[in-house]
Amino acid sequence: MGRRKSFNESEVLNKMSMVFIQYGFEGTSLDLLVNATGLLRGSLYAAFGSKLGMFIAALKENINHRKDSFGTTYLVIIAMMELVSTNVEVKQIVLNWYHTKPQADIELTLGRALLNKSGLLGGIDDGKQS
């Protein structure tokens, strides 16, 4: 957004990513993001414009810096479930992510992440996807 930021953006985005991964987009309230980041509500809005702006920044940060982590795939899944059908920017980001890998890999990546997140098979979520 080109605003002055008086905080470590990468650190803030990591904290926000954890909240979105735990609660999903709709389930994440501003209060949760305020508590997780320790920033004022007004500072978050000024820096990111909206809760969607916060999610998009978190999604981009993960795709750019932790492309193959479970965290990134979880955020992509949340985007697919909740936002791709309603927001053009999220749709474009997820499409770009999709086109970086062969389709079979995508399906495997999404499936593994989902199984891991569910805890169904008793796996340990170590944040790595290999």
Partner: peptide, 13 residues
């Protein structure tokens, strides 16, 4: 306009 958010809890602040 930078964005819009549903934020009921802002009324508690």
């Amino acid at each position: 306009v930078l964005g819009a958010t549903i934020d009921n809890e802002i009324l508690n602040e």
